[in-house]
């Protein structure tokens, strides 16, 4: 059975895993990923929300960053939420510009309604980054206040908000469809 992993370094790991588990319906197996061996053979990988500097330093420490890049180049689907979005951009896996904490500190975190791929979904933005440049061929799947907040190019999906903190499964379902 195909496997979809959640990077288990730090952050909203359990939240992503719980939603994937609830929608798997024997279509795929959700797994937690901590090592290079865990990444091997995944159809898809979710980089959760968290603190990108903390996640990034541990990715490098265990050489997981290079493994994610090489597997993504071999066709593994990768979805980054918030901190995960920053990491995907830093790894050069998608051509976007991203600005950390662009809305400000926690006082400026917000909830709003978004339209994602034609469906209405809740958008939870926590000390979120902003996508300030979208490269060629990058498809915009959702916008807030005129700026892109969800984008995709080929096998890479990026959201600057947290679908894993809501009970709406639209974006998880979208990513699973990409992977299967």
């Amino acid at each position: 059975m195909k496997k979809i992993g959640v990077l288990d370094i730090q952050g909203s790991v359990e939240e992503h895993f719980a939603i994937l588990d609830s929608i798997s319906k024997d279509r795929f197996e959700p797994v937690l990923v901590k090592t290079i061996e865990d990444i091997n053979g995944l159809s898809g990988l979710v980089l959760p929300g968290g603190e990108s500097t903390a996640i990034d330093s541990l990715l490098q420490k265990y050489n997981l960053d290079n493994e994610i890049v090489s597997q993504a180049k071999n066709g593994m689907f990768v979805w980054g939420t918030c901190a995960g979005a920053i990491i995907l951009s830093e790894l050069g896996l998608i051509d976007i510009g991203i600005e950390r904490n662009a809305y400000g500190g926690q006082l400026h975190s917000f909830e709003t309604e978004l339209e994602f791929n034609g469906k209405k979904i809740p958008g939870v933005f926590i000390r979120a980054p902003k996508i300030n440049r979208v490269g060629e061929g990058v498809e915009i799947l959702s916008k807030h206040d005129g700026g892109a907040v969800a984008v995709r190019k080929n096998n890479i999906l990026v959201t600057t908000f947290h679908p894993e903190l809501t009970d709406n499964i639209t974006v998880h379902e979208y990513f699973v469809e990409m992977c299967l």
């Binding site: 288990d8 359990e14 918030c82 400026h108 909830e111 926590i126 947290h162």
Partner: peptide
């Protein structure tokens, strides 16, 4: 802004 979900949510991002 400043909803319980957002307040709890930031702590969730610090887990692990």
């Amino acid at each position: 802004k400043n909803t319980p979900k957002l307040k709890k949510g930031l702590a969730q991002m610090l887990k692990g």
